[in-house]
């Protein structure tokens, strides 16, 4: 299948992107690696009039250590996240999770920011950045703003990035030596997660247990209260509202959340 017709514009700067977004509003879509957008266009689930390609904006592709944080440009490809020595040292969860996104070909094109802006609750990176407590830097006509991760993922496939805005950067705290784990449960290796759990120290985030990735607040509270991993994990499904689909019903997803949370906490504690 092939996309409906559109006009392609290759952006030469962030300002250029923003002016195009202001001009075309919801008729424009930002194209970075295209690994989420192009399948949607081909299935004609979206029919934008204008596609704005940001994949050549080198100013959006970087991994930089800045003080207590690592700053990752939104158009940084998964492959570069996987290979980043800075991230491997300071935020090892991210290279590991990025290595599970799609397949090699997808990781050669797909971008860190693109995956996050897509807002798929079953995706891997949203849960990871949520567990890490990332901050999102968003640029719009009114200027630049910073959004903490819990407020970034707003609804099913919907994030805090407005139609006339562009995600520039994701900032994650450096956590060298802190225990981490990512437990992804799939049907096949390169499928989307049926459920996944990211753990960083005692912070836990769940993928595909709600319309958005979410923190397992009850688990974290139980851990803070001195519960063991196994005990705390029992609370993993609290407050979740997972979908029922052909892979899993709500009850099974709740069960998986508990099992995977326990495993993630045990692994994180051992690292």
């Amino acid at each position: 299948m092939i996309p409906a017709p559109f006009s392609y514009v290759r952006a030469d700067s962030v300002d250029h992107v923003l002016s195009l977004l202001v001009e075309h509003g919801d008729e424009a879509k930002v194209l970075a690696g295209g690994q989420s957008l192009l399948p949607i266009l081909k299935m004609r689930l979206a029919r934008p009039e204008v596609v704005v390609d940001i994949s050549r904006l080198s100013e959006l592709a970087y991994v930089r250590v800045e003080g207590d944080e690592v700053a990752i440009g939104a158009a940084t490809r998964h492959r570069e996240v996987v290979d980043s020595a800075d991230l491997q040292r300071d935020v090892p969860l991210l290279p590991y999770v990025a290595s599970l996104v799609g397949d090699r070909q997808v990781r050669h094109r797909g971008t860190f920011g693109g995956s996050l802006v897509h807002g798929d609750p079953a995706a891997d990176l949203p849960a990871a950045v949520l567990a890490l407590g990332a901050t999102f830097v968003i640029q719009g006509p009114a200027g630049r703003r910073e959004v903490p991760a819990p407020e970034f993922f707003q609804d099913y496939f919907q994030t805090a990035v407005g139609e006339d805005e562009l995600l520039l950067e994701i900032r994650v705290p450096r956590v060298p030596g802190v225990g981490w784990a990512y437990e992804k449960f799939t049907r096949r290796a390169n499928d989307w997660a049926i459920v996944a759990v990211a753990a960083v120290d005692n912070r836990v985030a769940l993928a595909n247990m709600s319309m958005t990735p979410m923190r397992a607040v009850a688990v974290e509270a139980a851990l803070a209260g001195g519960a063991s991993a196994a005990q705390a994990a029992q609370a993993a499904a609290e407050g979740t509202s997972p979908v029922t689909d052909m892979h899993a019903d709500e009850e099974y997803r709740g069960h998986l959340a508990r099992v995977l949370t326990e495993r993630a906490l045990v692994t994180a504690a051992g690292r």
Binding site: R188, A189, N190, M246
Partner: peptide, 16 residues
């Protein structure tokens, strides 16, 4: 149909 693409039909992969 709920399995009308290769994203939804679990075509056996090399890691399976």
């Amino acid at each position: 149909p709920e399995t009308s693409t290769l994203a939804t039909y679990p075509f056996l992969g090399i890691t399976d």
